[in-house]
Design a protein around this nucleic acid. Structure first.
Lengths: 137, 137
DNA sequence: GCCGTTTTGACAATGGTTGTCAGTCTTGAT
DNA sequence: ATCAAGACTGACAACCATTGTCAAAACGGC
């Protein structure tokens, strides 16, 4: 999770964006642009791949979705539930995600940066593990 | 930074690996495989691109270099100074890096994971900011 | 020096992501 | 409702980092 600022700009409402939005609403975990595209295709709501990418990018720029990189370096997206800055606890196996608010870490990161004279600080933090369900099987 | 464990296996010493090693020794900041390859080429020590990738991957597997993803999703590598798990404070502008050891965060991450029943926990954490030098200019 | 293995390198192939550009749709104004 | 301006879309090409392939070369132990 990278801290972001920026207000949000206006965008036109289109069938494609609505479709992407809907999928995001119905999806608990992180999803890649490719997966989202494939999903839309199976649902019959055909949306161009390029459009999916553009839409997700726009949403990310506006801070309406979280973006993070999978271990494979693929970008994955997810509707941002909390408005404030937060982090994720992600299951390595099934992808189940828990959003985490970490005042502790925020402060820690800030103080570390201050110590070294770094300004305009942001940070990324993700925790990976095996969730209870996957651990059981 | 992802937590890693694993012992290290033996590998053969070759001219190419020595060359990659040398560059890593002389490089303070993170460098991508492509950059490293180009650098070797200009130095005359030609090493195949595929070899550079394989070498870096091996080093990473053995825990001898740190790997992280740039915002662009490109993998960047750096000789690992500390042996234990640590994080980085990276200058957004010039790439200058400070290695950070964070017992605080380690504990915090562990406890959060425990709370949600997640096991085999690892985590990634990078702090980005503008370093004093870049902020001055 | 010899031999089984590992490693290399040139190149093809993969795959996610972005660029292009003509055609389409949304919006605010009339 | 109608219209013009320009934002948005889609099909496809282009990019580019990374990985796969496989014959040739290098390494290390004997």
């Amino acid at each position: 999770m990278t801290v972001r600022e920026q207000p949000a700009k206006e965008h036109r409402r289109t069938r494609q964006r609505a479709a992407v939005d809907e999928v995001l609403d119905q999806t608990e975990d992180f999803i890649s642009a490719q997966e989202l595209h494939a999903l839309l295709r199976t649902r019959g709501a055909g949306v161009g791949l390029a459009t999916v990418y553009r839409t997700l990018q726009t949403l990310a720029d506006d801070g309406r979705v979280d973006v993070l990189r999978s271990d494979a370096g693929e970008a994955v997206y997810r509707r941002c539930v909390r408005e404030e800055h937060h982090h994720h606890l992600v299951c390595r196996s099934c992808g189940a995600t828990v959003e985490i608010a970490g005042p502790t870490v925020e402060r820690w990161a800030k103080s570390i940066a201050d110590q070294h004279g770094y300004s305009e600080v942001s940070h990324t933090l993700e925790i990976f593990g095996t969730c209870p369900r996957c651990a059981a099987s």
